[in-house]
Amino acid sequence: MAETAQAVDTTRESGPLPSPRARRRYAIVLASLIVLAVVFGAGLLVWDNPVPFGTAGFWKVAELRGTSIIVMGVVAVCQATATVSFQTVTNNRIVTPSIMGFESLYVAVQTSSVYFLGAAGILAVQGRIQFVLQIALMVGFSLLLYGWLLSGRFGSIHVMLLIGIVIGGGLGSVSAFMQRLLTPSEFDVLTARLFGNVSNANPDDLPVAIPLCIAAAALLWLRSRRLNVVALGRNVSTALGIRHRSEVMITLLLVSVLMAVSTALVGPMTFLGFLVATLAYQFADTYDHKRIFPIAVLIGFVVLAGSYFIMRHVFYAQGVVSIIIELIGGSVFLIVILRKGRL
């Protein structure tokens, strides 16, 4: 009896990847994503460089492109970690953090700057101080929303989401109204900022964006064991000794920092976050956030870098990468979901 129990025990594991097969599968997925990320990253750096290899000009071009790769990395980390954590604490895999009105706020800030200051206004909201102010505004706005709605008598995530949607919709309408009153040339200048685009990023902002992004993402990563429990819902996680409300608040605060950094840096990229999170759940196939986060970040980078590569070297369409992300990413998303048949 004791022998059989011993023999059974070795196969009875409850880890996040319980069988050797699951572990192998995860390692393969991780390795392929790393390879893809490196290939696309290197491709963006050196492919079709107009200046001959090895000359000073070549490195100049590569350096410029290197900045946009760093921006992609920052955006991938921000969007991927923020969306996965947000979906975990809201216990919902359809919503994205943009529901809290980050993007409407960004659009409203950009629009009103052009509306009140003219085409030159778009410059008035660029620069490091303005960048920090925009982040502070977005984080402050969301803190107000969480602080008000999660404590006190509402105390419900659903009420918070609903009010976030309503406020976001309101801000959106105000922006739309102001946009209608702009002259065509001002509107044109504005539109370029309203599509998520890596070349929107100002390299001067990176010294602020990178530490913020790394700090917030690292804190979420360190909390992943708690996030695993929070994913079981309020009742179960409370019963297991998690202070559910404060856990949710801390996570939402970190999420809002990440979303604010990404949005202030490159503009709205919501669909990327949703796409990346959903694909990451499929590919990681585990509940463990420690393992979902890296996969999500890598997918985010691969999707971004891949889309840019295709945009620059296949379609020769400079500018609106979000359209390519939605086209290609959306198709991949549908294929994966339809093949697997579950979210």
Binding site: E13, G15, P18, Q87, N91, A231, L232, N235, V236, Y287
Partner: peptide, 11 residues
């Protein structure tokens, strides 16, 4: 008990 993650019984 509402949960969203993919869990086995043992997990």
């Amino acid at each position: 008990n509402h949960f969203i993650t993919r869990l086995t019984v043992r997990q």
